[in-house]
């Protein structure tokens, strides 16, 4: 008679929640079986694809349209940027190792690699500051031409992402030093890691499209 099919068996998860009252927030026994914060971070990454898509798209649309110099090929120092790119890539390795440490309950390993990630993040930012000051000295300001406008806003937004990442990791690091294992749990470290790796991916694209293709775009 019934047009409403009843389930053949107990839905997944029902048994566990009988034993334990599920708190009504992040720690809620999850219908997808993963932490809500992790889903949230992946959603943020999907959304950030549009964010950086707009910035990189604008850079490319305006590439080669500057009416006055300096132009990209006058300024870019590929070997230097290769070094900073390398450092950012290796910071992702360090971050992955930190997450590995957190997931295996190895706080010592976590702290060591987290500290290294922070250091490499700061080094990358240092390279960016050096690069900016060098470019400004060479006459490329934010308001000099379209190249300056789009270049600084794109790489600057990425730099802000890196800086916020460094801040986030530093907070985690301090919390880990204080021995607060409740807050420095595998999920919290992992989502910070996801953010960090995403910022790294964006740089992979920026390095290829903005720096290495500079001659073609112009």
């Amino acid at each position: 008679m019934s047009t409403y099919p009843l389930p053949q068996q107990e839905p997944q998860g029902a048994q566990e929640s009988v034993a334990l009252q599920a708190p009504a927030h992040e720690a809620h026994h999850a219908a997808l079986g993963v932490d809500s914060k992790k889903i949230g971070m992946w959603l943020f990454i999907a959304s950030d694809c549009m964010f950086f898509g707009a910035l990189i798209g604008t850079y490319l649309i305006y590439a080669g349209k500057s009416t006055v110099g300096p132009y990209p090929q006058d300024l870019f120092d590929i070997p230097l940027t290769t070094v900073s790119t390398f450092i950012l890539l290796m910071s992702s390795l360090a971050m992955a190792m930190a997450v590995h440490g957190a997931q295996h309950g190895d706080m010592k390993k976590l702290k060591r690699w987290l500290g290294l990630t922070i250091l490499m993040g700061l080094t990358f930012l240092g390279f960016q500051v050096y690069e900016y000051s060098h470019f400004i000295a060479a006459g490329l300001t934010l308001s000099r031409n379209l190249f300056g406008t789009t270049f600084y806003v794109l790489t600057g937004t990425h730099g802000v992402h890196v800086a916020l990442g460094v801040l986030w990791l530093t907070l985690l690091f301090i919390t880990a030093l204080r021995g607060d294992t409740k807050r420095v749990n595998p999920v919290n470290v992992e989502i910070a890691g996801l953010y960090w790796h995403f910022v790294d991916i964006v740089w992979i694209v920026v390095f290829a499209v903005v720096y290495l293709m500079a001659d073609v775009a112009a």
Partner: peptide
């Protein structure tokens, strides 16, 4: 989980396609 890959690919397709 596959859902994370789906989310990332969705973001990429939307971003790439649009721009």
């Amino acid at each position: 989980k596959a859902i994370f890959s789906v989310l990332l690919v969705t973001g990429l397709i939307m971003g790439l396609g649009t721009f």
